[in-house]
């Protein structure tokens, strides 16, 4: 009896492996995009099976290291210690940029402020500026929202806007982008940052300037012509030895057809 059960379990597991031709795991930022692309790809190629799951950039890379996923999506470059772990395991990793994502700085729609410089953003996020009146708004305390410390978005914003300084400790960290949208739309003095694809009318996106002169609104066009500054690449990582297995989908992703989906979903195409 027991061996029978064991046999059943094994076949089920094997069966599962056979069907799961390819799995992609990682960044929640890249998730909606990859999911859409995978759907389109599976429609075009009958018999192809792609499973896409999120969990975060770190989760994806760890899974790639453990061999439980074929492709890791990441919204940040692989960290040094992660790279060295692959080296120790004798694995070569290939990195591919599949699209770009722009970060929009958002405030409550009732806020008078329409634009901020990078320096002002830095001062707000490091706690030097605490009231909207200091940057041309009403006399309202600034409530600063951020993503969780371990998300790729958090790191990118820190590098780009804060010039690697640390966030002040009293920022409110939200577990996900959606929660930031929700809170900013409810809270009068709020400021936060989200991926361009998430923008809607419940919040107001600010124009941003690095030089203090030209303020640029976040949009796909402005990100593509490089006038909007807060743009980051989204990566696919995979092992060199599984290149044959994964390259059809990645080729599709980089093809004009794939890049069209990128644009539809509110991300920035490579070209």
């Amino acid at each position: 009896m027991r061996t029978k059960i064991l046999a059943v379990i094994c076949t089920v597991a094997l069966f599962a492996q056979a069907i799961m031709a390819q799995s992609i795991k990682g960044s929640d930022t890249a998730l909606p995009l990859t999911q859409k692309a995978a759907e389109a790809y599976m429609k075009a190629n009958k018999g192809a099976k792609i499973t896409v799951t999120g969990g975060g950039s770190g989760v994806g890379i760890t899974a790639l290291l453990d061999g439980t996923t074929d492709i890791a999506m990441s919204s940040r470059k692989m960290k040094f210690d992660e790279k060295s772990k692959f080296q120790q395991g004798g694995k070569t990793v290939v990195e591919k940029v599949i699209a770009y994502d722009a970060l929009a700085v958002i405030v409550n729609p009732a806020n008078k402020v329409n634009q901020l410089t990078r320096q002002q953003l830095e001062d707000i996020y490091t706690g030097k500026v605490k009231n909207w009146k200091e940057v041309g708004g009403d006399d309202v305390a600034i409530v600063v929202y951020s993503r969780e410390t371990s998300s790729g978005t958090y790191e990118f914003f820190k590098e780009q806007i804060l010039k690697n300084k640390n966030y002040m400790s009293s920022v409110l960290s939200m577990p996900a982008t959606g929660a930031i949208m929700q809170s900013v739309s409810q809270t009068k003095g709020a400021i936060g940052y989200v991926g361009l694809a998430y923008l809607n009318s419940s919040v107001k996106a600010l124009k941003v300037s690095y030089d203090g002169k030209n303020f640029v609104a976040p949009s796909v066009e402005n990100a593509q012509n490089k006038t909007y500054p807060i743009v980051r690449p989204l990566f696919f990582y995979f092992e060199k030895k599984s290149e044959a297995k994964v390259s059809p989908f990645i080729t599709f992703m980089l093809s004009p057809e794939g890049q069209k989906i990128v644009k539809q979903e509110g991300y920035i195409p490579l070209q």
């Binding site: 969990g55 975060g56 950039s57 770190g58 989760v59 890379i61 760890t62 960290k79 210690d81 992660e82 969780e148 410390t149 371990s150 998300s151 790729g152 400790s169 009293s170 920022v171 409110l172 960290s173 939200m174 577990p175």
Partner: peptide, 30 residues
């Protein structure tokens, strides 16, 4: 609100141990 400051009043955002584990464990490198 999960902001990691030592609270002075109960009317400000704060962050607890379980919430920290739940929010951060997903993305740290093992």
């Amino acid at each position: 609100g999960n902001s990691a400051v030592i609270p002075h009043t109960i009317l400000q955002p704060l962050r607890t141990i379980p919430a920290t584990i739940a929010a951060e464990l997903g993305e740290v490198s093992s």
